[in-house]
Design a protein around this nucleic acid. Structure first.
Length: 315
DNA sequence: CCGGACTCCTGTGCGC
DNA sequence: TGCGCACAGGAGTCCG
């Protein structure tokens, strides 16, 4: 399922096709996947019809598709947030994909080739070079959100997320972790704490840090959080360099699978031996998700106990 | 404040 | 070969 490394890989692969391309036609097959700020009907000028795509940004698992250049400020840094034209936020959910299809050059007798789009393609954008960008999402946990401009996209969607997992500072994360009574797994999955991690990379990160997923988030000290942030960046960077994890059906904007699934230490390996200590990896439910960990390597932290009788000591 | 149950949805893999 | 079912889970909502 697409998490930060997969979405980043999608972004990078789409960057090779989209900037500078004008959208000449929009096919909306399933309007239900589209959410507009106030109201029904697809809008945001009907999903960028006629607009020229300028850039793609990522925050956490969100991909922003921006059109037309932001106004030039002489000599200054121009924030993408100052863009004044319609834009989209894309979330791939579990099974979503954004692919660019290029129709093969007409080979059989000059017959016009139409691009065959895969099942569950909900939106398709035809570009001015003939390529087709397709949003496909069988399980429909993903979606597309439309906005009038980049500032609105930021205010209504991105600002509700925590810092991106690649950008968060240890001090910020320490503040957030120590301010909650939840366990580590649930807290790190919370996109308003930290944007970008999902079930796979939280399990991998906690294993890497030898932290128990059910340990209280507030039990970490500053050194632990510094190490956690360092390992998180390294983990995500390695995953991006491998093109992400294709656990089931994730592929990037070109339809290429990732390789990082071969490097996963715990995710999906419940019942198999730990690659470090050979203990059998355990599975539990944490943060509402299947959670795999090594009871031996990750057993050293204080764990939140379910309190069965709160009047333990009162007697 | 927190966890758990439930919702959305469909492909996959299992048992029979 | 095929049917039915449990299961996977990101994010939101509701309830206790």
């Amino acid at each position: 399922m697409p998490e930060l490394p997969e979405v980043e890989q999608v972004r990078r692969s789409l960057m090779a096709h989209l900037p500078g391309r004008r959208i000449v036609r929009v096919h909306i097959r399933k309007p239900q996947v589209i959410t507009t700020p106030n109201g029904n009907s697809p809008t945001a000028v009907d999903l960028l019809q006629g607009q020229t795509i300028t850039s793609l940004h990522r925050h956490g698992k969100n991909l922003a598709i921006l059109t037309s250049p932001p106004p030039q400020c002489p000599g200054g840094e121009v924030s993408w947030l100052s863009g004044a034209s319609p834009c989209l936020a894309v979330h791939l959910g579990m099974t979503g994909s954004m692919h660019v299809h290029r129709p093969k050059a007409a080979g059989n007798g000059g017959k016009r080739q139409s691009t065959i789009l895969p099942r569950h393609t909900h939106i398709a954008w035809t570009l001015d070079d003939g390529a087709v960008m397709a949003f496909c999402d069988p399980r429909r946990f993903g979606g597309i959100w439309t906005f009038d401009n980049a500032a609105q996209l930021h205010a209504q969607r991105l600002a509700k997320l925590g810092p991106d997992a690649l950008a968060i500072k240890p001090g910020d994360l320490y503040q957030k972790l120590t301010a909650t009574r939840r366990n580590l797994k649930a807290t790190l999955l919370d996109q308003s704490v930290l944007a970008g991690l999902g079930n796979i990379y939280v399990d991998e990160l906690l294993f890497s840090c030898r932290l128990h997923p059910l340990a209280r988030a507030s039990s970490v000290d500053q050194n632990t959080v510094r190490a956690l942030v360092r390992r998180m960046r390294a983990l995500l960077a390695r995953a991006i360099a491998s093109g992400g994890s294709t656990v089931r059906d994730y592929t990037d904007g070109n339809g290429n699978a990732g390789e990082f699934q071969f490097d996963l230490r715990v995710y999906g390996r419940s019942g198999q031996p730990c690659r470090v200590c050979r203990s059998i990896l355990a599975a539990t439910i944490a943060g509402g998700r299947t959670t795999v960990y090594c009871p031996s390597c990750q057993g050293r932290t204080r764990i939140i106990r379910k309190r069965r009788n709160s009047s333990k000591r009162a007697k």
